[in-house]
Design a protein around this nucleic acid. Structure first.
Lengths: 394, 394
DNA sequence: TCATCTTAGTTCAGGAGCGAAAACAAGCGG
DNA sequence: CCGCTTGTTTTCGCTCCTGAACTAAGATGA
């Protein structure tokens, strides 16, 4: 049962401020006049509210545009330099730290290679904290201007302030990465599963843009998904919703590294694909996959079929408007096989939900995880724009 | 991306009124004093708001309770007779119409048997409309006091005002049942999938009570699910989310009546269970199932395993707090095999989400579909309590 | 019996919001 | 320089919620 919450008159203000900021952010330079139309707020409210935002330097003017014989419109936009967000992509073999302005333009970045089996939590945390220092000084951004740090990690992230991670293939079971990081910084921290941050990125800035019911799947070493319901990431009760890679598509089938059998990941994860093709996994996975795709191996068609089953299950269960295929394996497969993937999905879904879904490729490259992690910070900023933040600029 | 909506000061009133009504409804008789604590609203607001609700006869007094030496508390509750809701269960072989008061006590009901292959939409619509007449006159409730009619149907219901239904095994493809009904009544209509109305009933009044992240599965002739996210039924983009029965658990497996292969329903739907056991489906399904359960057939264990796979996929993908097993097949299986079902689910889920989920049996009997359909009306009433409804009583 | 205590519920003044409309601003055309 | 058009700000009235003062209603005990 839905349990609505009490509201007070101040919530209106906060809420409408968020509406205004969202609109301004996603519509780009907009006049006050346009804002009244787009938000449905009265001109009066837009006026006073924008005055406040301008005063706080959250919003800046962005030129004028002449109007049909009358007073020209003054364009406004979110000040991209009002604040910055750090996005961290912590993956199986590297830690990547990026600094983004509010328009999500990358201002600096730094990479650390993780030697296999060197996933010591302390070491990773040190890498991340060092990375933050580096990108800030490279870009000349003072810490006070950073709105927060988002971190995308493999595995399941418990809800709660400590950012506790469970990542089997990693050897992490209950590592409180958030707590480790908080020892080295007082900035707001957002730790989330990497598939979810990638999903967030594609949803806001990539192929998912504009959808409010969508699924973004990640095909890489691991297989995961972000389910978007009503415009926000669906997390379930303990933040692990979307573990698509370990749903079973062949009861009792191939063993999976999770310990189970018949998982989707045991068919369409990169290791599984190469293994099924009998390709030695000693070399470079990307090269191996490319060679396999270039060959006429029936394993390709099988992979497409299994992927179609997995996607069809999402179509039936989630009924999304859009499915975005992301991750580097997804990109390679999709590049050449998208029509076949669509056909395989159609063959395994119910007609009505399939007809309502469009299946597309992700648009963002390998940096999507870090970008999405930074987007967590942006999301918070747009939803609850501080009123009393002290700005250095201005 | 979440897109907040503009609010005006009047929305607060409406919203808080809904908060108050929800609290009153679900907490039963409650004093104003308690209401301030439970809702977080100030005593002043509760006072004026309840005065309004009392004046409109939506809320009535329900006795007093003495307080430790001071003025006794006056208890308030939603007036169960303020309005009534009709709930219709339209199934493969019957149409059942029930009249419920606001407390969801059944005041009258009537059944019509549908002869197989007599699913003429006009006929069904006539049954429903006749049924409404009958229950109203049986209970002596005038039409003006009816808040709406909810209808639970098999198959997929398109969003939109016409209640268009797609139900393959039924021979209905694009039947606008809502529009047909509207020709015979001007009451508000809510047409929804039967698995969803059952889910709604279990969520509000059955085993799902209090959960805001849950899945209610329906095991019967068909197999379906209601996914509850943030306290409300998750519908996807075209209202067909939750088609769990046709998700694939064995790629390329047994053929299903939907035309696909390897669907869950082709393993745990009643026809599939009996078929796999080699039981002739001529007799009564319920008897057949009971006999099968009493036997030592390995088909039972297989069924549990397949069901476990299906449930585990829900656990991994949805990460619910609770899974409620409903439907008559679900009840029979669960009665004897719940521990085995839990084990099978555990064996196929990731540890973290499984640990967060409790798997329980539904508590409502065979009338849950009709009750849930009526609950659609109730939900609307609680969320947007009319301000100017004309009441006969009072 | 009645003053006092305790808890419940109501009323009122004050502050915060929004919206409609009037006022003001800023170009354009003549 | 004067109207005209369009964009933005200000003014004013209304609604809402809240805290505090106030009233209501029973219990207690001298």
């Amino acid at each position: 049962m839905a349990r609505p919450e009490r509201r007070t008159v101040r919530d209106i203000r906060r809420g409408n401020r968020a509406v205004l900021l969202h609109t301004l952010y996603f519509s780009g330079p907009t006049s006050r006049n346009d804002l009244t139309a787009r938000t449905g707020l009265s001109a009066a409210t837009v006026s006073t509210m924008t005055a406040g935002l301008l005063g706080e330097n959250i919003v800046v003017e962005a030129g004028q545009v002449e109007s049909d014989g009358g007073r020209p419109r003054v364009l406004l936009r979110v000040n991209p330099e009002y604040g910055f967000a750090v996005g961290v992509d912590m993956a199986e073999n590297h830690v990547r730290v990026g600094l983004f302005d509010l328009e999500m333009t990358e201002r600096a970045k730094v990479d650390y290679v993780l030697r296999p089996a060197r996933h010591d939590p302390e070491l990773v945390a040190r890498h991340i904290l060092a990375g933050v220092e580096v990108v800030l000084s490279d870009a000349g951004v003072p810490t006070e201007q950073v709105l927060g740090i988002g971190v995308g990690v493999p595995g399941i992230v418990e809800p709660g302030p400590d950012g506790v991670i469970h990542a089997k293939p990693f050897g992490w079971d209950g590592v409180p990465l958030g707590a480790l990081l908080r020892r080295g910084t007082s900035l707001p921290l957002y730790v989330d599963n990497g598939a979810k941050t990638l999903g967030q990125a594609e949803l806001w800035f990539g192929s998912g843009r504009g959808s409010s019911e969508a699924v973004i799947v990640l095909l890489g070493v691991g297989v995961g998904a972000t389910i978007v319901a009503d415009g926000t990431t669906f997390r379930g009760v303990s933040n692990s919703a979307g573990e698509w890679g370990h749903t079973k598509i062949v009861a009792g089938g191939r063993p999976c590294r999770c310990g189970g059998r018949g998982c989707l990941e045991a068919y369409v994860g990169i290791e599984a694909i190469l293994d099924r093709a009998g390709v030695g996994s000693q070399g470079d996975w990307e090269e191996d996959l490319d060679r396999l795709l270039a060959s006429e191996s029936p394993v390709i068609q099988e992979t497409v079929t299994y992927l179609g089953v997995g996607l069809a299950n999402l179509v039936n269960l989630v009924n999304p408007e859009k499915i975005v295929i992301g991750g580097w394996v997804g990109a390679r497969l999709g590049e050449r096989l998208l029509p076949e993937i669509r056909r395989a999905t159609a063959a395994n879904s119910l007609a009505e939900p399939y007809a309502a879904t469009s299946i597309v490729l992700g648009r963002l490259g390998p940096d999507a995880v870090a970008l999405g992690a930074a987007t967590l910070v942006l999301e918070e900023f747009l939803n609850t724009p501080q009123v009393a933040r002290i700005t250095a600029a201005g």
